[in-house]
Structures are given as structure tokens and as C-alpha cells.
């Protein structure tokens, strides 16, 4: 009866027939975790181990030397580190919330509403995806100047809100929600806002969680605004600060500091990921639509 294995519902236990899958999954899983281990151990490596060639993945004699160096450089500059950190946290939080709202509502309109420019807008978005972001930085600067947004706090947030990748992923996801579900809700008397908040958003949770991770990353690592549009030190972000600290001390000693900075920059990503991953991974299984 082995042929009907596929129709059995979720065996909770380990079975011999699963071994072949593990043979594939385990080695690859090791590769996937490797960079993570590397980032952590790199930050704790003392100087002689950092310069070792070929580099070792694990640290032999962990030390906090890199962190100590990094923080002692920080105190030399005028502003306290917490100011940059506060800026980054505010910027990131606002960006993530607004990006999710804007992308999902646009995705809903593109996928389920019928209006003239619908296909055209989606095509333009797809083309924009393929354009190198760096190339538009100067025209973008000109617009920012014209709008008088130079040296303001909001410029940290505004450029990232309409995220082409986000719209692309969410729209593809909403396409899979059957129209009949929305029609049924309409017949029951739901208006567009109820449909949007009660049906689309709950069903999109996996896509939203992915979007949260992607936009969090973009916002947290975003340095363009701080380095180009903002002169006022107190509006700049932590990512920018980390960049300057590691690049202005570009000596051998800078390497250790860069490693420690990378870990500090990376940790929030990891934390957000751990919080959202159960949504990303699980809600997809019982999203109520097949």
C-alpha cells in the first residue's frame, strides 16, 4: 500500500522511509547555516585568527577585543551612538508598516479590481524591478532637492515606501485567492474595506511576513539617504554610522571592527526573522484556500 503514502495526513513520527529525504536535506541545511556561524565567530576572532589563511569557520580563542575597539571609536565622535540607533529604529518601524500597507493595498487593487491602467501599471512595475537601483540615485537626488526634502528626517523613509519587489510578490500571492471568496463576501454585504482588512490581509499573512523581512532589511541597511540627502548628523542612521566607522579606519585593525559591526548590523535581522518565520512557514499550510 506504499503507493498511497502521499494521501496520508502528516505523520508525526519518524519513519524509515523518510531517511532518503534527510540524506538530501541535512547536508544542504548545513550549508545554509554556515554563513550564520561564520558571522558570529568572525566577530569574536582576535587579530591573528582574522588574518589566517585559509580562514577557519570557527573561532579558536574568542575575545571581545573587536567590540571594545568599535565602541571606543564611537565615543570619539560628537553624538552618542544611541541617537543613530534611535533614528534607525524609528525609520525602520515606520517604513515596514507603511510599506506593507501600501504594497498589499496596491496588490489587492491590481489583482482583484478591474480598471483601465491595471495591466500597464503591473508591467511598468516589472520593468522597474529590472532597472539597476544605483543608476537612478542622481535623478532621485534632483527630485529630492526640488521637493525641498534635503536635510529632513522623512527623506530617510519616503524613497523606500513603494517597493517594486514587494508589490510584485504580494500581487502574485493575491492572484491565488479565488475571486469567488471575495464575491461571496460582497453578497454578504461586505464593502471594500472589510474585504481588504478581513479577507485579503489575513489570507496574505505569509506574503506579508516575507514582505516584512524584505522591507525590514532594506530599511535597516539603508544608507543612501544618510550619505546623500542628509547633512545634519543627528538625522543619520545607524547603518550609515557603521559604514563610516569601518571605512574610515580602513587598516588591518579595521577588519576586526568591521566584523563586529557586521554582527551588530545583522542581529536585528535575525531577531525579526525568528519572530516572523513561524508566520512565513506555517500559515501557508492552512491558509484556508486550496
Amino acid at each position: 500500500m506504499s503507493k498511497f503514502q502521499g494521501t496520508k495526513i502528516n505523520p508525526k513520527n519518524f519513519h524509515k522511509s523518510q531517511i532518503k529525504f534527510y540524506l538530501f536535506l541535512v547536508p544542504f541545511a548545513v550549508f545554509m547555516v554556515l554563513p550564520l556561524v561564520f558571522i558570529f565567530s568572525q566577530a569574536f576572532k582576535p587579530m591573528d585568527e582574522l588574518l589566517q589563511f585559509p580562514p577557519k569557520i570557527l573561532v579558536a580563542h574568542p575575545s571581545f577585543e573587536n567590540f571594545r575597539q568599535l565602541f571606543s571609536t564611537m565615543t570619539n565622535s560628537g553624538l552618542p551612538v544611541t541617537r543613530y540607533l534611535f533614528n534607525s529604529i524609528t525609520v525602520t518601524a515606520i517604513t515596514v508598516i507603511l510599506t506593507v500597507y501600501i504594497s498589499v493595498s496596491a496588490g489587492y487593487a491590481l489583482s482583484k479590481k478591474k480598471f483601465g491602467l491595471r495591466n500597464f501599471i503591473f508591467k511598468v512595475n516589472t520593468f522597474a524591478l529590472m532597472f539597476v537601483p544605483i543608476a537612478v540615485s542622481i535623478p532621485r537626488y534632483i527630485i529630492v532637492v526640488k521637493m525641498g526634502l534635503i536635510d529632513t528626517f522623512v527623506i530617510n523613509i519616503l524613497p523606500m515606501l513603494a517597493m517594486p519587489v514587494g508589490l510584485f510578490l504580494v500581487k502574485q500571492f493575491i492572484d491565488q485567492i479565488p475571486d469567488t471568496l471575495i464575491e461571496a463576501a460582497k453578497i454578504d454585504g461586505a464593502n471594500d474595506f472589510i474585504i481588504f482588512f478581513r479577507i485579503i490581509i489575513p489570507l496574505c499573512k505569509p506574503a506579508i511576513a516575507t514582505l516584512v523581512i524584505l522591507s525590514f532589511q532594506t530599511a535597516w541597511n539603508y544608507t543612501e539617504a544618510s550619505s546623500i540627502y542628509i547633512n545634519n548628523e543627528s538625522f543619520k542612521t545607524f547603518a550609515y554610522f557603521m559604514n563610516t566607522v569601518t571605512s574610515t579606519n580602513n587598516t588591518v585593525a579595521g577588519m576586526g571592527m568591521a566584523a563586529a559591526a557586521a554582527l551588530i548590523m545583522f542581529l536585528p535581522n535575525l531577531i525579526i526573522f525568528i519572530f516572523t518565520q513561524s508566520k512565513v512557514m506555517n500559515t501557508m499550510a492552512h491558509s484556508g484556500i486550496k
Binding site: Y101, I102, S103, S105, A106, Y108, A109, L110, K113, I121, V124, N125, A128, V136, R140, I143, M147, L158, P159, L161, A162, P164, L167, D192, F196
Partner: peptide, 14 residues
């Protein structure tokens, strides 16, 4: 529904 996105997209991307 799409207006917020269009504005941001026009100004900072398109």
C-alpha cells in the same frame, strides 16, 4: 487602493 503606491512609485522610481 493603488493611489498611495502610484505616488511613491512615480516620484522615487519612475
Amino acid at each position: 487602493f493603488i493611489s498611495g503606491w502610484i505616488i511613491g512609485f512615480l516620484i522615487f522610481t519612475l
